[in-house]
Nucleic acid binder design. Structure first.
Lengths: 228, 228
DNA sequence: GTCGGCATGATCGTATACAATAATGTTGCG
DNA sequence: CGCAACATTATTGTATACGATCATGCCGAC
């Protein structure tokens, strides 16, 4: 669907594939990512795998433990709060810029995004729906024509996916698409102020739908608990 | 002075040293960073150097050109605008948070920072002064206790150093320390709103002191111009 | 029977060797 | 004399081999 950069090496391909797998919760937080194992899957040497893992580690999607290996990151409750704090600073203003610059073509693309999201949801593919819902936020940054901020939002959205895997309890996934739909109508009206407000409350809704009080509950957490 | 993480490998040391050299303008934008060359300087193999360069590339401090090598990044005027756009979104609110949480110990550390900045300036070490002036902004994010935002600001400050190397014309470096001094007084008064305003105008001052109209003027740019 | 020390195995960290690509210098032809 | 094709050299891209570190299982001692 989306092509990689023209001069992208095999490491980038591996990283992109792992990233999507993590994003879609096929690789849950805490999963060990052995270098030999991944290398065998993609038929590349450990050199390539290491480059990919380092790239993902820099984006905080995996944690690199020296002499122990790479693991899908397990954001703490504090990490979660920080991620949404950062999103609250970046995204509302970016949505405003997007609303002021959006073209009709962009609007159609955004609408198609939502439709695909709905379709995935109806098909029961919640992983893909979650992925697309994240892409929606990234698309807004792209429309705002801010590649630096887009890169940050991209990272924050990825981390949010991990956070959702760990702390999401309220299973109401429909609020998502409703918020996105409201955003689109603000975009269509070129109403920057409304888009900013909608994005702000959308992010607030997201963070309040998390349960950040108790500790991690994932399978491997007990091992992690005493390993450190 | 500052220690690296306990479990930091040699690659991180190399990356940190290169980063500071770039930050202090000892490695100007466009400089070629040959792998063998760097490896010889630090007495490490190319494996380590490559990891360090990849890390720096991810932070946009160096540009990696496939089969061509690594070069100190040369942000475009557009990049410069985007960097300061992002800083404008992140730093003022972060300064407000910092003002609301700052301790007396933090205040002393910040003051020491400014003093060192002045000392470096008087000693004619403008590179070090610039480095310390960047550290000041990072320190504020640390005080605000937002490690995620701090990481972004760290990256943006580094890139700002490259932007200053390329687009800075007005040689008035004194406005810097004055603005930082005013910020400290707002922090001392725990005046979050004032800190936020001061940071906002400080960043505005910075970006307006740049000349983003004409193209890059660095030595290697002519070669770069037709290579692509 | 349990705990501590030791041997074993697996995995990661690093260096090095080889292959591929791009830049450069040279040579021959027009 | 200028240009183009080729050979050469240098540099990066990738794979693999070896060493170091940590986890695991075994065994003996208390």
């Amino acid at each position: 669907m989306e092509d990689v950069q023209p001069s992208a090496g095999p490491g980038d391909v591996v990283a992109a594939d792992l990233e999507r797998a993590i994003h879609e919760h096929r690789l849950p937080p805490g999963t060990k990512l052995g270098e030999d194992e991944i290398g065998e899957v993609y038929s590349v040497s450990r050199t390539i795998v290491r480059a990919a893992l380092q790239s993902l580690a820099h984006r905080r999607l995996v944690e690199l433990k020296r002499n122990r290996g790479a693991f899908v990151a397990q954001p703490t409750a504090r990490d979660a709060r920080e991620v949404f704090e950062a999103r609250a600073l970046l995204e509302p203003r970016t949505a405003r810029s997007a609303a002021e610059r959006i073209t009709d073509k962009d609007l159609i693309a955004l609408q198609a995004h939502i439709d695909a999201e709905h379709a995935a949801l109806r098909a029961g593919d919640s992983g893909r729906a979650l992925y697309l819902s994240g892409q929606f936020h990234i698309e807004i940054a792209r429309i705002a024509d801010q590649t630096t901020i887009e890169a940050y939002i991209r990272e924050l959205v990825s981390r949010s996916s991990l956070i959702i895997a760990l702390y999401w309890h309220r299973r109401a996934a429909l609020c998502e698409s409703h918020a996105h739909h409201a955003l689109i109508s603000a975009f269509a009206a070129r109403d920057g102020a409304r888009a900013e407000d909608l994005m702000k409350s959308h992010l607030l809704d997201l963070v309040t739908s998390l349960d950040l009080r108790n500790v991690v509950s994932m399978p491997s957490s007990l091992r992690e608990a005493l390993a450190r």
